[in-house]
Write a protein that binds this DNA or RNA. Structure first.
Lengths: 334, 334
DNA sequence: TCCCTAGATGTAATCGTTTTCCTTCATCGT
DNA sequence: ACGATGAAGGAAAACGATTACATCTAGGGA
């Protein structure tokens, strides 16, 4: 392997000079610079990042911890993160946890070992105290999720968003509105549930246990929810699903059971993933700026790493109800 | 920061001993081991990976270069890669290129700088010579894509798969079968095109230019293809799309134009992404084992890195035609 | 002309491990 | 009882960069 020493020898200077020329754009005399650059090119020299990282105590790498990249919601956020990271010369380590705490902790060690300069968590299964102690020592940002305490975070107002979604169904005249929840130990799920119940309360509608079913955020659990809800004696006329995947699973199964959407049952999703607009019927859903969430989270983290952040910052981005076909508003139905 | 030196001092041994105890499970006397382990725990010592990487000339990191993680096809493969990498203690650096050669080359530098031990390319825009010279120096594996030459690769037989898909439509009695292609400079697209034309030829059907339209592999280009193909004077009765996303876009637009799928036009996709089975109509498609492709690619690469690989290996995994509703086979339709 | 200063460059320490030699010491066979 | 053997552990040299400090040079002001 060709090292800086080789370059220095060929250029007839010391390694210190080579290092300076390479890192500081206006160091060295033109003549020296010319020689060094020529030597670098001739030898095909590439600086060794491990050596560099060791010395400067930085890695220009961040880790992103999430349940599953194979989920369009997360992958879009990750895209936002990676784009700004790359822009600023940082690399992104991908860490899929499948919500396995064990695996999450393993990944987390990377930071303690100085294998990364900071972390973005898109998941929330980590117990809050754990995250908090971590955030006290190294740069950490939470995206989508949030917890009480001194951590930078970026998300939308999930309670308000769920409220909007449910209210929309109420305004369309529905009285029996079901809710398909996400995993109960995720803050997101709880918030959306709160928004849902709040909307019902405000409208003076009863909250019925049998209309609130648990889910996993995956397609399959939408199917399951449909089986359960649509075989009720008095089935709901509308359903609010905590994410688009479950909404799609729900609709698919509803048709399999001979019901029409939105005619027999109206459906509203959450997230506005790329496929939402292309489903049949096109999904009415809460759009959240996933790409931007990723971007903002990355910027927050990189600022923290660069030391130009004054205390933890919480960003709440706007959400938006996107009315399409699945809710039955307008004459668009079918 | 607490270093190995601190541990050594507290345990009353040298750093050499600490290193040995920590890395070699049966080094040191039990008593010494006890003392070292205790010191490590007491100080909360974590080894510094930069220092370690520098010394052992390894990073336990691989990079995955792909066009866009926000694409279910790739994200599933990446999941497979990451799972086996993690299993073996490796980390995965995510590199989205958006098919931008410039960006691809930037990422590629990471390897030359010893920031990673190897690379998996899920993309094929890089000119083959470039990949080949790279593969000659460092461990490289191609997944999905393939090129002629000495590189390990894992993929399916795209020509055969496209042949199967097209043949299926022919067997259903279709005579005017269109093809929505991927980007023309991607080997995948070309192979699938070849399978398509081969099937037509074998069946004695004419190959008509107007029935072959270009696409981008994205949803939107499926829409565009539908507009174009379905406004033809003599529109096709069946369409084979080079991936599921375009198939979904196509179907969506077909309905928007008042056509029924599969009644007015049959559709077959490619990939069998997670959403395929849940679309309405459920997509008939070519299933390829994406997760396994990722796993195999990762294993190939890790073996190469570990030095236990004898020359480049090419793996061709089986594909499978999955008949659902969108092709109109069976009485399942709609 | 001489001194001072600023910029360029070199020397060597440093970052935190791993690993190669050594030295020491206990054990074992004879 | 004694040398051979091997295990255990220490000292110090890597690994390949960055950087504090020292040295040298040229140019400017008095």
């Amino acid at each position: 392997m060709v090292t800086m020493k080789d370059v220095a020898r060929l250029a007839g200077v010391s390694t210190a000079t080579v290092s300076r020329i390479l890192n500081d754009p206006d160091a060295g005399r033109p003549e020296t610079r010319r020689r060094v650059v020529a030597a670098v090119k001739k030898l095909g020299y590439e600086p060794n990042v491990s050596a560099r990282n060791l010395r400067i105590r930085r890695t220009a790498t961040i880790i992103v911890v999430l349940p599953d990249i194979n989920n369009p919601f997360f992958s879009f956020i990750v895209r936002g993160i990676e784009d700004v990271a790359h822009e600023q010369g940082f690399s992104v380590l991908l860490c899929n946890t499948d919500n396995d705490l064990e695996r999450e902790l393993q990944y987390t060690k990377i930071i303690g070992r100085r294998g990364a300069d900071g972390a973005i968590f898109l998941t929330a299964r980590v117990s809050s105290p754990h995250i908090l102690t971590m955030a006290a020592r190294v740069p950490v940002v939470l995206a989508c999720e949030y917890i009480e305490g001194a951590v930078s975070q970026v998300s939308i107002d999930n309670v308000a968003a769920a409220l909007d979604a449910t209210r929309h169904l109420i305004q369309l005249g529905h009285k029996r509105i079901a809710y398909v929840n996400g995993p109960p130990d995720v803050v997101l799920s709880r918030d959306r549930l709160r928004g849902y119940t709040l909307a019902l309360k405000q409208a003076g509608l009863p909250i019925e246990e049998e209309l609130i079913v648990p889910g996993t955020f995956y397609l399959e659990s939408g199917v399951e929810a449909a089986r359960r809800l649509l075989s009720l004696d008095d089935p709901p006329t509308a359903v609010f699903c905590a994410n688009d995947e479950m909404a799609i699973g729900f609709i698919k199964e509803a048709y399999a059971m001979g019901r029409q959407v939105p005619d027999d049952v109206a459906v509203v999703g959450f997230d506005d993933i790329r496929f939402a607009a292309f489903y049949r019927p096109a999904l009415t859903t809460i759009a959240q700026p996933m790409y931007e969430i990723g971007q903002r989270a990355a910027r927050l983290l990189l600022d923290q790493i660069a030391g130009k952040a004054q205390g933890p910052e919480s960003i709440v981005l706007p959400h938006r109800l996107v009315v399409r076909e699945s809710c039955g508003a307008g004459a668009l139905g079918r």
